[in-house]
Write a protein that binds this DNA or RNA. Structure first.
Lengths: 204, 204
DNA sequence: GTCTATACGCTGATAGAC
DNA sequence: GTCTATCAGCGTATAGAC
């Protein structure tokens, strides 16, 4: 007697399997490049069966994005205005770097979408993310006013953290081609620690 | 009596028009997402006529990549081992940032390809780019040994320059959604100057 | 050189049997 | 819930008239 809302265990498992397969495929090929067939095959389902769970390719994609967005932005929300500023920022950098190591597919999913103009994410960017960034900028500005970190441009500081950390996931093939392929991120954390300590250390 | 080699003026013009249209389309949609029809329409040609000049979608793409690769890597090749180290590196950063401002399509073309695993660029990365990076690492290592720049990880330094500068082109919609849309790169050069001066300044 | 017409596989999505 | 069969549309690419 399972309604659409109260899913059976099988349905829950299948939905989770589908989203994981979709993450594989979308993150590697982008929305346009991905095909429903690839997702179905990767999930071990037939194409019509997959479309029984999600009515369209776009529905799978948006379900995936909204499921991941909170996880993706959590480290930034965790920035504590009461904490020790430089350590707070370095902790944020480290968490983002860990996410590039542990969740490269998620990183590439967003990267693909944004590089192509974020047609299915534009509202999120200009509303939700904008709000979160504005809040963070206030925290950073306060820290600068109090002399706890050096004066710098808060938004470019955020952009730099995003680009530097996500680079290891988004451009992984390139990094791998140029580093030792076994541990392409070797030394990355030390480098970023060094970089941001030098930038943020309050100057004379 | 134009042979395949000695193209007429019309042919040369058409090839250039096609590659420019292809840059538009491929950089916005990636290889899989792009269609020959879009390129043809954007170039003002019929689809069969376009396929007269380039026999396949893949042929257009590889022609475009090989045409752009030299331009794209030129700033790194221009790094002068005899120059003043910090200024040489800052000049490189500034040139890369200018390229993100003036050639965002080219940046996104490569970004799309690499995020998706660089299936049509892997050899270039692991041979040509690898060679260029190895040469650059030698220069940087020497500067460090001579105490002209601070000790840091040369490859991560390069990755950081790439990711920080290309971010403004590759993630332009996101940057634009969070900065003033008129001049999204406002303050970027000062930020990067500051960042790298602090990192590279020889310490005590 | 450029066009119309077309071949033919694959796309996202649906109908209907089980 | 899951399947086979199938749809219309679009994808790349080609043939052949002009």
């Amino acid at each position: 007697m399972a309604s659409e809302q109260n899913s059976t265990r099988i349905q829950k498992r299948n939905r989770a399997t589908i989203l994981d397969a979709a993450l594989d495929v979308f993150s590697q090929s982008g929305f346009n490049g991905a095909t429903v067939n690839q997702i179905a095959t990767s999930a071990g389902l037939s194409k019509p069966n997959l479309l029984y769970y999600y009515p369209s390719k776009e529905a799978i994609f948006t379900a995936l994005l909204s499921e991941l967005l909170d996880v993706w932005l959590a480290p930034l929300r965790a920035l504590d205005p009461q904490g020790e500023p430089i350590e707070e920022i370095l902790t944020y950098v480290r968490r983002k770097l860990e996410m590039s190591r542990d969740m490269p597919r998620e990183s590439r999913l967003f990267a693909n979408e944004i590089v192509q103009g974020a047609p299915r994410l534009n509202d999120t960017l200009s509303i939700d993310l904008r709000k979160l960034v504005d809040d963070t900028v206030i925290i950073l500005d306060n820290w600068m006013k109090q002399g706890k970190i050096a004066q710098t441009h808060p938004k470019h500081l955020l952009f730099s953290i995003w680009s530097l950390t996500q680079h290891y996931a988004d451009f992984e093939v390139q990094v791998r081609a140029l580093m030792s392929p076994q541990d392409p991120m070797d030394g990355a954390q030390e480098f970023l620690d060094d970089l941001y300590r030098n930038l943020l250390r309050p100057k004379g």
